[in-house]
C-alpha cells in the first residue's frame, strides 16, 4: 500500500529518522504463525518530528493499562516489526523482563531515547517492542547486526542508563535466528 511520506511541519523539530508505531494483539487460542502475526499487527501512524510523535503518543493507551496479550512496536519507517524484514534478519534484540507496574514508564523512556538518538550506534537501531503479558511485561530493542558485539554492548549500557532499571534486572540478548529456531 502506498503511503504519504511523513515530513516535519513548519517550526517542528525533525527527528533523525522517521518512525512508525504499531499495535498487535494475539487472538487467544490461535497459533502465532507468521501469517496470523502479520494479520494481527496494525500500523497506527508514522511521524517525522518530535511534535508529530507526541500527537500520536498522547492519544495512545499506556502499555501498563493494556490487558491481554498485546504489544506496541516502534520501528524506523520502512522496517516492519518482524524477524523476516531485511533490516532485521541478521539482527537480534536485548530483552528486559519487567515486573508489573514498570512498563509504561520504561517504554516511554526507551522510545524517547531512540527518537532522541541516545544510543550512538549509527544506523543499527531498528526498533523496540513492549509486550504486555499476564505475569510480567517485556521490553525489547532490536538492532541490525547481532554479531556486532561493540554495538550490542553499547546498546546494553545505554539501556541501563536511560531506563534507570532496578539493579537486579536481568538483560538477555537473543539473535532473531535463534528466536525463529526455538519458536
Amino acid at each position: 500500500a502506498r503511503r504519504k511520506m511523513a515530513v516535519p511541519g513548519a517550526g517542528e523539530h525533525p527527528l533523525q529518522f522517521n518512525y512508525s508505531l504499531w499495535y498487535s494483539r494475539r487472538t487467544p487460542g490461535r497459533p502465532a504463525s507468521t501469517q496470523s502475526y502479520e494479520q494481527n499487527i496494525r500500523q497506527i501512524g508514522t511521524f517525522a518530528s518530535v511534535e508529530q510523535f507526541w500527537r500520536f503518543y498522547s492519544h495512545m493507551i499506556r502499555p501498563g493499562d493494556l490487558t491481554g496479550h498485546s504489544d506496541f512496536h516502534l520501528f524506523k519507517d520502512g522496517i516492519k516489526p518482524m524477524w523476516e524484514d531485511d533490516a532485521n534478519k541478521m539482527g537480534g534484540k536485548w530483552i528486559i523482563r519487567l515486573r508489573k507496574g514498570l512498563a509504561s514508564r520504561c517504554w516511554e523512556n526507551l522510545i524517547l531515547a531512540i527518537l532522541g538518538e541516545q544510543f550512538m550506534v549509527g544506523e543499527e537501531i531498528c526498533g523496540a517492542v513492549v509486550s504486555v503479558r499476564f505475569q510480567e511485561d517485556i521490553l525489547s530493542i532490536w538492532n541490525k547486526t547481532a554479531s556486532d558485539q561493540a554495538t550490542t554492548a553499547r546498546i546494553r549500557d545505554t539501556l541501563r542508563r536511560v531506563l534507570n532499571l532496578p539493579p537486579n534486572t536481568i538483560m538477555e540478548y537473543k539473535t532473531h535466528t535463534d528466536s525463529i529456531k526455538y519458536s
Binding site: 532522541g116 538518538e117 541516545q118
Partner: peptide
Amino acid sequence: GTRIIYDRKFLLERRSSPVAK
C-alpha cells in the same frame, strides 16, 4: 552528516507545545 540528538528533558518539554518556540 550531523546527528539530530535530543535528550529526554527536551523531548518532554515539547509534549504540550505543538508549535516550536
